[in-house]
Amino acid sequence: MTEAVDFNVARWLEAQQEAVLDAWMSDIVSRWKKNYLHVVDTEHLHLQSRQLLEEIRKLFVENPNEFWEPTPDSKIVVLIRSLSTQRAKQGFKPADSTFYVLSLKRVLWRRLLQDRIAENKVALATCLAMIENVIDRLTLLIYEVYVETRERLIAQQSLSLLELSTPVVRLWDRVLMVPLIGVMDTQRARQTTERLLEAIAKYEATVAILDVTGVPVLDTSVAGHIMKTIAAAQMLGARVVMTGISPDGAQTLVKLGVDFSVVTTRATLRAGVAESLLLVGKRIVAVKDAP
């Protein structure tokens, strides 16, 4: 833009504010009412939108002739980030989230074209371009925030799943149990090993039961991970008792040539518990006068 145009977008916007807001909000509400209105407080939405409109007007005041470039800590960026983060968390689809600013563009364009300014082609083109620039930037920002928020959510979920899936249970003095459940990948195996070693040290455990009942397929990669866990536990002086290998699983492991002879194995967790207690000099006995 070389020269300021006569027409001042900022001033025009100020005059139009209420009308724009009304048209914009009714457009939004008609699109969102099916899926989102129960999560959106319309009064709050009005307030937010008025604030956003005000920030856009200020942008035009501050950058009358140039194209605006967003900076991370500018007020409008912060505003858009916070409301799109919130919407992503509320389960908005990205198209519906970006519709928020795209709808504003539509309203502004329509009003501009009906305005006196539409007669001056150069001024009109300038205004449209300025509005377009701001809205485009905001759209990209909303999209970016959307993806960031969802990714963070997914990362959190997989992390909590990981946490969930590697408990180390203290069964008795010096006897620990690790129920392996689900898919064992490298990350999972590493975490299980770490947890087990910590627990062995902390409780001065001498026996660790590794129960694989919940592992769907014992292939070589899983077997490899389990063997590393076993080796680490043995290095700390703990005996490992492995339980829960199904008859089918045992046959398959033999065919694969995987050798678990370094550990005591028991078909069931029950037998493994009995064996482990024996290893620390304990035994489960029936109470004499039990009812």
């Binding site: 292939d219 070589t220 990669s221 089918d248 046959q251 398959t252 694969l256």
Partner: peptide
């Protein structure tokens, strides 16, 4: 049989891994 199912699943697991 279930042993064959396990064998097959394991073999597929090996090659795809």
């Amino acid at each position: 049989g279930s042993a064959d199912q396990t064998r097959l699943a394991t073999a597929v697991s090996e090659l795809t891994r």
